[in-house]
Design a protein around this nucleic acid. Structure first.
Length: 439
RNA sequence: GGAGGCGUCGCCUAGUCCGGUCUAUGGCGCCGCACUGCUAAUGCGGUUUGGGUUUAUCGCCCAUCGGGAGUUCAAAUCUCCCCGCCUCCGCCA
């Protein structure tokens, strides 16, 4: 949700944001109109309710007088005054009811529109669609397998030979885009989890394990029921959702709370399984575990003041780079274009790891500055002195397991089918330096 | 799943039976002022949140007693539904 004040003072700013996103610009004008209608109805209703309250409040004391009235004559006099007041108030009650219904309808209409509006984009984000990202940085050098004298195998070949990845049985049991991590595959995930958490805690983040099923409010509040709704699993029988990222449960963690400014920033490193329907990606990445319905992820999430949000965003990006650096994987950092931000983000940086067999970089992390967008929806505020106002939330992937595993297997494979284990991971793998094929 | 109890403006708490002087009591905490070498103590005042209006301020109005619906001129208080917490029973990793 954006600041409704902007709607009244500077709607052009919102229109420009919508334009850059390639989203509905007319929505802004509909909203401005709905807001005007809503406030007029509110005035009308509150004015009538005020009149009614005034009348009603006179009745109470008179009832007391009535009980203490000395004689029948006095009682009759007071009673007649009560009768008049009640008659007037009664007449108003109908009007109040009508005005209230009108206001509620206008209010709902406006709220519905507001929820459709995406966050204001950061003006530094490159304008355009998915392909219009800007490359900010190239780190590391992809290996020259030709020079090394062998053809790199893809992660599934390597993983199967290590007995680490089993997509065949995944499909048998759960369908397409499901997989098993077995043996060293499972060990590798645990090692990555431990390395990620060690780094996160070293940076002062609070480790946290979140629910993976959430109520509609959490999903709505984080902005996943808009354009992204088709990628979310819904549990029909209980009206709940499976989260696509622990960001949902992490953001909602402080929902409806007012946090003292001196508690900020609040930084978490959440661990959860993530579920994605991957609707609209039929035929894409069908081989291996690059695009799956269920995976585990360590996610960083920060609550901070809006003033500090951009600096915090850079910090999250740096921590993501630190992690990929530790795994010795070549990557590039991109500034995601406005049309590819998702509704909550004002700005987004992705890290894309080099995938040798694809000859390209693929997304492994993503960090978004959602400014006050989620906080407004989830009613998360900060108290700075006497002032209470929305805070900013940010999220960033620290380690999305399958894709990192893909990157490790492919980038660190050796001619004999073994995989070199990066030094940073070795302490979490009982000192193993290499995974060797079982077959 | 069953039975019972509970949910009040940061925390604790009065009020709910019997609707109206509830503009929600008191304590703690916090903020301001006064007093005092400093601190502490004490005294006085302030202290829910959201919205509208005004906005230079003061202010005024509406809503808010877990959530929603209803009865009523009027609901913390009465009715119904829902949610959460606690205790016990059952089941269970």
């Amino acid at each position: 949700m954006i600041d409704p004040q902007i709607l009244r003072t500077d709607p052009e700013r919102i229109r420009e944001s919508q334009r850059r996103r390639g989203e509905n610009v007319d929505l802004v004008d509909d909203l401005v109109a709905a807001d005007v209608t809503k406030r007029a109805a509110q005035q009308e209703f509150e004015d009538l309710r005020g009149q009614q309250n005034t009348l009603s409040k006179q009745i109470g004391p008179l009832q007391g007088t009535l009980k203490q009235a000395a004689d029948a004559a006095a009682r009759a006099q007071v009673q007649s005054r009560v009768d008049v007041l009640m008659a007037n108030a009664s007449a108003l009650a109908d009007q109040v009811k009508t005005a209230e219904a009108t206001f509620n309808a206008a209010s709902e209409a406006a709220d519905l529109l507001v929820l459709q509006l995406s966050n204001l984009v950061n003006l530094d984000s490159p304008v355009g669609g998915e392909a219009d990202f800007k490359i900010l940085e190239l780190v590391g050098t992809p290996r020259d397998f030709a020079a090394e004298g062998f053809e790199p195998k893809d992660h599934l070949d390597i993983g199967e030979r290590l007995g680490a990845i089993d997509t065949g049985r995944g499909a048998k049991v759960s369908g397409a885009r499901f997989f098993y991590l077995v043996g060293v595959g499972a060990q590798l995930e645990f090692a990555l989890l431990n390395l990620a958490m060690q780094q996160a805690m070293g940076n002062g983040l609070i480790p946290i394990i979140t629910p993976t099923m959430v109520l509609p409010g959490a999903m709505e509040g984080t902005g996943f029921l808009g354009q992204a709704a088709e990628n979310v699993y819904r549990i029909e029988s209980d009206d709940m959702y499976l989260v696509g990222t622990s960001e949902v449960a992490l953001a909602a963690f402080h929902g409806d709370e007012i946090i003292d400014a001196d508690q900020l920033p609040l930084r978490y490193a959440g661990w959860s399984t993530c579920f994605r329907r991957e609707a609209g990606s039929y035929g894409k990445d069908t081989r291996g575990i690059i695009r799956v319905h269920q995976f585990d992820k360590v996610e960083m999430f920060v609550f901070t003041s809006p003033e500090d949000a951009e600096a915090e965003h850079q910090r999250l990006l740096q921590w993501e780079k630190d992690f990929i650096d530790a795994l010795e994987i070549p990557y590039r950092v991109i500034d995601v274009a406005t049309g590819d931000l998702g509704s909550s983000a004002a700005r987004k940086f992705d890290i894309e790891a080099w995938i040798p067999t694809q000859g390209t970089y693929r997304e492994v992390t993503s960090t978004s500055n959602t400014t006050e967008f989620q906080a407004r929806r989830l009613k998360i505020r900060m108290r700075a002195g006497k002032e209470v106002r929305p805070l900013a939330t940010l999220n960033g992937t620290l380690c999305a397991m399958p894709r990192i595993i893909v990157a490790i297997l492919e980038n660190h494979q050796q001619a004999d089918g073994s995989v070199r284990i990066p030094a940073a991971l070795q302490p979490f793998l009982a000192g193993q330096q290499v995974f060797t094929p079982k077959v």
